[in-house]
Design a protein around this nucleic acid. Sequence first.
RNA 1: GCGGGGGUGGCAGAGUGGUCAAAUGCGCAAGGUUGAGGGCCUUGUUCCUUAGUGGAUGCGCGAGUUCGAACCUCGUCCCCCGCACCA
Length: 876
Amino acid sequence: MDHKAVQQKWQKAWEDEKIFEVKESKTKNKFYVLEMYPYPSGSGLHMGHAKNYTLGDASARFKRMQGYNVLYPMGYDSFGLPAENAAIKDNTHPRAYTEKSIANFIRQQKELGLSYDWSRTLASHRPDYYRWDQWIFLELYKKGLAYKKTAIVNWCSTCQTVLANEQVVNGACWRHEDTPIDNKELNQWFIKITAYADQLLSGLEKLDWPEDIKQMQKNWIGKSNGVDIHFALEGIDTLLPAYTTRCDTIYSVTFLCIAPEHPLAIELSKGTSHEAEVRQAIEQSRKQSLIERTTETGQDKIGAFTGKYAINPVNGERLPIYVANFVLMYGTGIVMADAHDQRDFEFARKYNIPLKFVISDDGSPINPEKASCAFLSDGVLFDSGDWTGMHNRQALPEMAEWIEKNGWGKQTVNYKLRDWLISRQRYWGCPIPMVYCDSCGIVSVPEKELPVLLPEDVTFGSGNPLATNRNFVETSCPSCKKPARRETDTMDTFMDSSWYFLRYCDPHNDKKPFAKAKVDYWLPIDHYIGGKEHATGHLIYSRFITKFLKDLGMHSIDEPAKRLFNQGMLHKDGVVMSKSKGHYVLPEEVSEKYGIDTARFYLFFVAGPEKDMEWSDQGIEGAFRFMKKFTEFLPETFTSKTDPKEESVRNKTIRDVTSYYESSTFNKALIELASFTDFLRNKGSFSKKSAETLILLMSPITPHISEELWEKIGKKPFCSLAKWPTFDETKIKPELEAEDDFAEKVRQDMLTLNTLIKFKPKSHTLIISAAWKYDFYKKLKEELAKTRDMKTLITSCMVKGHESEIAPLVAAVLKDPSRLPDFILSQATEKKALNTLLPKLEKEFDSHITITFAEQSQDKKAANAMPGKVAIVAHE
RNA sequence: GCGGGGGUGGCAGAGUGGUCAAAUGCGCAAGGUUGAGGGCCUUGUUCCUUAGUGGAUGCGCGAGUUCGAACCUCGUCCCCCGCACCA
């Protein structure tokens, strides 16, 4: 078969006939398959990408054939820094660079035979898409969920822009692991994702997502229950709230700590003799890079006394207030400190602050002077007023109630999740539709003026590129019409990707982002394929925006993706395939040599799709050998009758392969299909039905060859749209298959047995058989009964779940010597059980015989060579 | 430290209480075919023993449960991946 010609023929036919284009249907059930839309890099696709897309394609094709109305679109995450940098480097415009890259991507993807509905393709850098980014931003702004504030933010000096928390990895930029994040104080746009923290957390439970991803999101959201305890500032009428999850240790508090970033840190010390020290401590901890501050290596405690005291509301004790570097601006930015926390303990030791314990294993006091470390475990409270003697975990919720009731504090829930910083000081992104007016302040661009177009003409190199285009910057205030300035920052591209899957449902709508009915029909995504690296980024943002748009009444969907699938990475030379690092295989090359279907087959065959796998040139040779068999499996003519065995294998193959496809375990499906192919080829002549079945079952993986063969057997195109074969369970007869000659063997075994048994017609015979050979066991018993009195038969079938029956049986035999068997009939499979039994039995009588049936032997040749197929071993 | 996932034959990778010396593919070996040692087909591929049967060892390591464990329980070692001074 000429792979190249076949591929081109069918790819063209699919495209000409637009067979993968879909629309909403009242009668068909929908199925939405999606791969995370790619960033269209200029270097194009390698085999690793191909693996990802064919994974979605196989699912889409499978579901389509099962009769679902399958939405399977593709688009491009085409804004972003890499395009800007690449364009600067090649001295071209990011738009030209991006459009070219997209065209190249599409060409390559079509060559993979992917069954996308190309009529829905979108790209986030195009105004017809990003105008709705701006629209969503304005909706967020209207609802108070988009706001501008000055804050200490993450700055990457290589990217020359700020980053969201989600884009900081180990204290460094997600794109530059060697560029530590700088802390800068800037005025930036934030999205209030924290307003949805609780929903984002509880929504996880319903999702059919990998456990580790759910866990990562849980940790990222980081919900904790605690109490804000109000400590009065001594001498001043101010309350300092300190967040704690351990209010059971309130009696052990000996000082308070405040984060260096906290506005009060400096304020408190002002005018005291400690001001200089405090300033120095703040300065020092600021100098510590985020890496030092959050990793084990740089956990030196730095701090200073502010000169002020607070009052413990519970017992009126005076507590010195310290600035401490280990306290983060989380919760209230103030913590109460005691001997039941290792960090507090270390800090106290360093600055000679007294400590107090209130929990010990048995409630007996601990001398703080002698303690060498904090007491972190749970135990019994002491020196804790009325709570003394109680177990701390039991006391904790009650104490929280008690504190709140007395007005000393308030029970609070805290999250680690922070608001999403979306401002970027770069050009190639969606403009933030805001205007700064000297008289009106921050004014939003009216909806009818959207989109705020990204200007073509900017100068790169010094600061924010958009600021270099005066025509863009200089505008008039939408409110008072006086001269005003446009926002020159662009949006984080994660904003673009947080709703693109909704736009696919209605990609050409120019009145609104999408029609509600269409989204309600297609969503949620039934099978979302993408990498783990998006666990705490895109996958949280998109859930958030989906929920927000639902609250706006835009659609009725709770969660964007019902099932998430993390594909494994394709490796080359032991490392993840990557063009920039030079470890890659190109789909074109493989396609040229073996045909793309071979590559698709190989990618699915080696391992489960969720596993990382190594590309192997020998491996693809093996796949090619199979593909050759497959392309040549059709006989000259088909048999008119189907024989039961063939039907059995065919139905079983449909059943198993369908269930493997259903669970995306393609590797096992392909093993079944390979063995079905071998079965048919060995058989030589078979029915047309079997041929059809094989072609159809293969077609999600090898669509081009399947189409070709489908045509060859006289079927109308397209097999891609043909009905998925169904199976009839009643036609599946295992005994006809692998064990098809089993019955015959058993019969012969019986004859041999009969002769054997005739020698001692009055002795007992013990039969042990296993449940999965129940039919065999029954037959054996019947046969023996013909030659022997039933009383002389002692039998047992180890039914599953009743395996231990064999023990009482043996016990019964041993108890009654008259029932001692002189034959033990068994099968090879029970030899392990027998091995444990034989020694027991051997003690009781002189000899016995074990008979093993040869059909259990793996070696068919040996079995056939054996007359009677029974082997006898006599034990002395 | 916390959380999640793993350790199976020369390699990749199935198998999660008995049809298991362990699917399938690669590799390796032998035989067949063909003017080659390339392609294809067949068989074999832990060790000992056999004409065939059989036995021993064996799924990271150690113990346990069971008539029976790659699979269950406990302990232990190692690897990967997240989070990490979050009070």
